[in-house]
Design a protein around this nucleic acid. Structure first.
Lengths: 123, 123
DNA sequence: TCCATATGTCGAGTAGTCTCGACATATGGA
DNA sequence: TCCATATGTCGAGACTACTCGACATATGGA
């Protein structure tokens, strides 16, 4: 993931509807949702949603696949991983010592079982 | 970190100059750089840079502190951690099983010593 | 072919962003 | 107080993003 790709991804997620769509599709992994279903659930006109889905797709955050008359969209976990990695590696490269607590923090967020609403303190 | 805060951060980083400024300040942790020094290094007029720095500050990604006549800006590692965490937790909450490989991938990005230019495969 | 369903594309209006000259504010020194 | 340095704020022009009606394309069935 280079800077241009990261900027595309940041731009795509910097919009309430699109951020919510991305999270919606994440919840529906690995089945995905059709474009119309996404538009309906978000109460957004289908053509507006089509534009948002295109932007998310261009950013590599989601992926489209035609299934009969529908086009099913799915979140691209690798893209999210790449974006999170971009943020983290950014400091790892120049300042590895700053990275360790950050990684530790992220690891804490994902315990073996349910994470509940427990937030990490300060870090 | 809630959605609104994440959108602020994404918006702030979705601009080439600001993304580069954030990375620049990350490289200069923990000393930071003055507003003028940042503007000079980026070859951007001071008032344009002032606007960008204000946006990054409002997003919580950087922090300002006056030192005599200068105002020194520093990267807020916690904000970056929060943003990366927001992305990761997003899938952890609904799909913990998707989170493990992601965390593993991030951990790989930051080996005990120098990371060199080795990229993780597949992801 | 004709129709219904599903989605994408185009165009225009509105709103927001980016940039930078001009001016304002804040600090330190004489 | 006066000046130089350092930074922030305002305003306008150019550009871009968001939205949605209207139209186009694609699939499946009769």
């Amino acid at each position: 993931m280079d800077s241009d790709q990261a900027i595309l991804a940041f731009s795509a997620l910097a919009q309430p509807t699109r951020l919510q769509v991305f999270r919606l599709l994440m919840e529906h992994e690995p089945d995905g949702l059709s474009a119309g279903e996404v538009a309906r659930r978000m109460s957004v006109p289908h053509n507006t949603m089509s534009t948002h889905l295109a932007i998310l797709t261009r950013a590599g955050l989601i992926d489209a696949e035609r299934q009969s008359r529908s086009i099913v969209y799915r979140a691209q976990l690798e893209a999210m991983r790449g974006l999170a990695g971009f943020l983290v590696k950014d400091c790892c490269g120049g300042r590895p010592e700053l990275c360790a607590p950050l990684i530790a923090d992220l690891t804490l967020c994902c315990p073996p079982q349910k994470p509940s609403s427990k937030e990490v303190a300060h870090g």
